[in-house]
């Protein structure tokens, strides 16, 4: 407990009113914890860490942590994060987004951030629903699931965040859940320490807006569902019947220098050529 207290004192804002805005049973606080523990484990200086968040429940995380924090508009976190990273490559820039943020309204920014491999860590809190606006379906809401805007069941199919980001060219893509906390900590820390664009999808239940309408009796039951349906990718691949199962772990680890590094090298080359010619 003592260590947790220390982390709370060091990384959470004293002048911000607590408790968090999150509902009882929400997994977002666990992702926040994972983020803090990863930054701590890597020994990063708080002054060098920038959290850029979007809109929604996940976006509120930015206000609580004692880093440089920017709460942007819906879907635009990655655009601002890109500007910050290019302007000052020494900073560790983390974009915290929800599924609506990252893959619906901000979907274009996400695939381009992955394609250009800007040195930003994307932490996507996927709860399959628009929580803050009151439970409307998102682009990750499973087919058939109920929400206020899919009262007869979702007709459209859901994005697979991992596959999409992989295809767009990201240096690193991984998936964890708020039930498998140790593993999630490791995935976040790994993403933070690697070059290029690294995305971590964190499955985090929303009992209030998603669970209640889709047959879950309690938040605990949703965590149990995570426990039962998610398994490490190595075991997942050996399964004969993968129905309803979700693989966890690291899916891609490519060694691609971030755009900021490649850009600096290009400028260096340009200036050296000019200097040599003069």
């Amino acid at each position: 407990m003592a260590e947790i207290t220390q982390l709370i004192h060091k990384y959470l804002r004293h002048n911000k009113k607590f408790p968090l805005v999150f509902c009882p049973g929400c997994g977002h606080g666990i992702v926040l914890g994972s983020l803090v523990r990863s930054v701590h484990a890597l020994g990063l200086n708080k002054d060098d860490v920038v959290i850029v968040a979007g809109i929604g429940c996940s976006g509120r995380i930015a206000a609580y942590v004692d880093f440089n924090t920017v709460h942007t508009t819906h879907g635009r976190a990655l655009t601002v994060a890109t500007g910050i990273k290019m302007a000052n490559p020494k900073l560790t820039v983390i974009a915290v987004m929800g599924d609506g943020d990252a893959f619906s309204i901000g979907g274009n920014h996400l695939i381009h951030a992955a394609r250009r491999n800007i040195g930003v860590t994307a932490l996507v809190l996927n709860n399959f629903i628009y929580g803050m606006t009151g439970g409307q379906c998102s682009s990750t809401t499973p087919e058939g699931a109920y929400s206020h805007t899919s009262p007869m069941g979702q007709l459209e199919s859901a994005f697979d965040i991992v596959e999409l980001t992989k295809a767009a060219g990201a240096a690193g893509v991984s998936r964890g859940t708020v039930y498998h906390v140790k593993e999630l900590d490791a995935l976040v820390a790994d993403a933070l320490s690697r070059p290029g664009f690294n995305l971590v999808e964190a499955l985090t239940p929303c009992f209030t807006q998603y669970g209640r309408g889709n047959g879950f009796k309690s938040a605990v039951e949703m965590f149990r569902w995570l426990k039962d349906s998610c398994l490490p990718i190595e075991r997942f691949e050996k399964l004969e019947d993968r129905t309803g199962k979700i693989p966890l772990g690291s899916f891609v680890r490519r060694d691609i220098p971030g755009l900021e590094t490649r850009y600096a090298a290009m400028c260096e080359g340009v200036r050296r050529k000019k200097g040599g010619a003069a």
Binding site: V52, M86, V270
Partner: peptide
């Protein structure tokens, strides 16, 4: 811009992203 000390030029995916990047850069002191 590549000839300007620390100069950064970015072609973004759309105008929304362009403004986002400009805001980020300005927050970072540019």
């Amino acid at each position: 811009l590549p000839h300007v000390p620390d100069g950064v030029f970015l072609q973004m995916e759309d105008e929304i992203a362009s403004m986002g990047a400009v805001i980020g850069a300005s927050l970072a002191g540019r």
